[in-house]
């Protein structure tokens, strides 16, 4: 058995660092776009200017203009708020619900835990997008069901990790010591189990945030989410679909932003996960 040297262990981390910094920078720009879109563009995302219709990308209009002369870049910038809000909201709900279900399963008697685990297993074998589609099929289309669908679809993943983590923490020495010292069980759950579960879940949520944004864009593209004129990324894309032959930029740029967001989220998430494993080892 060879012992890995410090340097060989560090190298992949340092390689990931540049990517993680770039990813964080992009996500930071998105946050700026969501909070203060006017900082990034002077153009109006709603006002139509028919004379400027279907202009190709240029310095004046970096992403070109759409069929009614609106600046596509401005629309994407202003649309960030909706897409980010849906992503953050859905991820937060999914993580909280997953933490609750997983921790309860980890603490519950064996029969209940077995039943919950079975359900989680079955749900995990479905991809999140399909689950979200099924939830919307039952709830009906709309922005509220969109958020519920995306959150519900992600719950099993978080619940599984929370359950395993709960098991591990409960069996660890210091928790058993605390119980022997007379710390009530509920207190130990709040003070020991939940904080230790939250770390891995937050790392997963970083990656899950990207997935949520992609799912939201896909579902809005299908017309199952918010309706126009809300300038969400998925909707801008679906509007551009009819102009692919004459003005490819309307559909291509919003999709590119979605893709880069998903990549950034997963690069950052993987980096955090690798770092977390490094400190745990």
């Amino acid at each position: 058995m060879t012992v890995p040297l410090g340097r060989t262990r560090l190298r992949p981390l340092r390689a990931g660092l540049a990517g993680a910094i770039a990813a964080s920078a992009f996500l930071l720009v998105l946050v700026v776009a969501a909070v203060a879109p006017a900082l990034l563009t002077g153009a109006d995302p709603i006002q139509t200017q028919v004379l400027q219709a279907l202009r190709a990308p240029s310095i004046e209009h970096p992403f070109g203009t759409d069929q009614t002369g609106r600046d596509v870049f401005a629309r994407v910038v202003y649309g960030t708020r909706y897409s980010l809000a849906i992503g953050v909201l859905a991820t937060t709900i999914a993580m909280t619900a997953g933490l609750l279900v997983g921790t309860l399963a980890g603490l519950a008697p064996r029969v209940i835990d077995g039943a919950i685990s079975r359900v989680i297993e079955v749900l995990m074998s479905f991809p999140e997008f399909l689950l979200a589609l099924l939830v919307i099929a039952i709830l009906g289309p709309g922005p509220v069901s969109l958020v519920i669908a995306i959150s519900l679809a992600a719950v099993p993943v978080y619940a599984r990790v929370a359950r395993v983590q709960t098991f591990t923490v409960r069996r660890s020495g210091y928790v058993r010591a605390a119980l022997i010292l007379g710390v009530p069980k509920w207190r130990s759950v709040l003070r020991h189990v939940v904080p230790n579960t939250l770390g891995p879940l937050l790392v997963m949520a970083t990656i899950g945030f990207g997935t949520a944004i992609a799912s939201a864009a896909g579902l809005s593209f299908l017309g199952l989410g918010p309706q126009p004129p809300t300038p969400g990324w998925g909707l801008i894309l679906s509007e551009g679909r009819n102009f692919l032959g004459t003005a490819w930029w309307i559909a291509v740029f919003p999709g590119l932003v979605v893709t880069v967001t998903v990549i950034s989220a997963s690069v950052l998430g993987r980096f955090l996960r690798a770092r977390g494993e490094g400190t745990a080892a």
Binding site: A217, F221, L237, V252, S266
Partner: peptide, 11 residues
């Protein structure tokens, strides 16, 4: 893996 399916299709 990260590109949304519908966007890849449009491109």
């Amino acid at each position: 893996v990260s590109s949304p399916t519908f966007w890849t299709g449009l491109v």
